[in-house]
């Protein structure tokens, strides 16, 4: 269980990026955080990853507080961020260098196979396409067997076809390790394709707004009526999140609205 309790982040310049975030994510759930730019999605992930410290509130993973980068938490950045001086295999194995050589090689080879890049193990990152690089970066995060995997708009720079392909690779890896996944996106169809729950965020200051449960079976067909209904529900929630807040209404986070 990943739990965030009244988490707030105010930057040094006074920007209130996040305010009073409460969220509980059961193990192996995939949660999509949706919202426009400036609603604190990336800040939220950076806090959970331990890259930044919250101004108030606490984060705990299975009861253990997170105060810095944690071995159980992996992060896939918006850009691949591969190390250009390491070949693909060494990049994937970057975070598990303390493992014995043979076990590391096995895990790297397995992860590369899972993302369909086994034959590119010896190449330089610059020789790969953007989609391939992002697959390497996902493999790098998975090799460390994280209990929580955070993804910060990892597919936003890719074309629709590549993105769909990467969704498939991501879900295949998830099936295997079954980490809790928090994926930040501004693409509603991505949330519908991947998540068990979509949470809409409101800007200024960043807060969690409506939550939409997505109890659809996998593999999901984006053209199926259930997916289309879910997309409409999330779009509706996004619309409401951009209107001035109605003081009387309280966010329905606990159970979440279904459709």
């Amino acid at each position: 269980m990943l739990s965030l309790q009244s988490l707030s982040k105010t930057y040094a310049d006074g920007t209130r990026a996040l305010e009073a975030i409460d969220l509980a994510v059961p193990n192996a759930e995939i949660v999509a955080l949706i919202g426009g730019s400036g609603c604190g999605k990336t800040t939220l992930l950076r806090l959970v990853a331990g890259l930044d410290r919250p101004s108030a509130g606490r984060i705990a993973l299975d009861g253990e507080p997170i105060t810095g980068p944690h071995p159980g938490v992996g992060l896939v950045f918006q850009e691949p961020r591969l190390l250009p001086w390491l070949d693909v295999a060494a990049n994937v194995g970057f975070g598990v260098s303390d493992l014995p050589r043979r076990e590391r090689a096995e895990r790297v080879a397995h992860a590369l196979e899972r993302v369909g890049l086994a034959e590119h193990a010896g190449r330089w990152p610059r020789e790969l396409s953007g989609g391939q690089q992002q697959r390497v970066s996902i493999a790098r995060a998975f090799v460390a067997n994280p209990r929580v995997l955070l993804l910060d708009e990892p597919f936003s720079a890719l074309d629709a076809f590549t993105r769909k392909d990467l969704h498939r690779h991501l879900l295949a890896l998830w099936e295997e390790v079954r980490p809790t996944v928090l994926i930040v996106t501004h693409d509603v169809s991505e949330a519908v394709a991947l998540a068990d729950r979509a949470i809409v965020m409101r800007p200024k200051p960043g807060r969690l707004d409506e939550s939409v449960a997505l109890p659809l079976r996998r593999p999901r067909d984006p053209a199926a009526p259930a997916s289309e209904a879910a997309t409409r529900t999330i779009l509706g929630a996004l619309d409401r999140s951009l209107r001035p807040r109605d003081a009387a209404r309280t966010p329905e986070l606990a159970g979440g609205s279904s459709f």
Binding site: A49, P69, F77, R81, L83, G95, A144
Partner: peptide, 11 residues
């Protein structure tokens, strides 16, 4: 800084 953060994530 982005590459340094990769190092921080892996502690």
């Amino acid at each position: 800084r982005k590459l340094v953060e990769v190092g921080r994530i892996f502690r």
